[in-house]
Amino acid sequence: MSTGLIFACVGVVLFAMGMAGVLLLEHLLRRILAFNLMGSGAFLVMVGFAQRMDVPDPVPQAMVLTGIVVAVAATALALALARRLHALTGKYTLPPAADD
């Protein structure tokens, strides 16, 4: 198993853990961190899986850089919303949805 493939497998595991965190955890901050874990997993796969020949491929690296920017923006938005929610309700958990 090449290094790249090991990276990719670890990435998939990280992704799965992160996704489970986003879906199953209650505390918003933990969920946001879990999302970041998910993102990192995907980035690892992207870089690792594409690197089966030993020559580094610049394209996935550029993609990951872009992806990190997107993830940072999303995290910032999520944190801002979570802080505001905390200021209003005093809690870091989502209240049950009132959907009708």
Binding site: A8, G11, V12, F15, G18, M19, V22, L23, L28, R31, F35, M38, G39, G41, A42, F43, V45, M46, G48, F49, A50, R52, V59, P60, M63, G67, A74, L77, A78, L81, A82, L85, L94, P95, A97
Partner: peptide, 26 residues
Amino acid sequence: AAALRYLLATLVGSGMYLLGVALVYG
């Protein structure tokens, strides 16, 4: 709360999409 719920759902969705893209590129 609705926005956060939406955000988390959409991020999970795009996370899966991104992983898919990574596998396709690989």
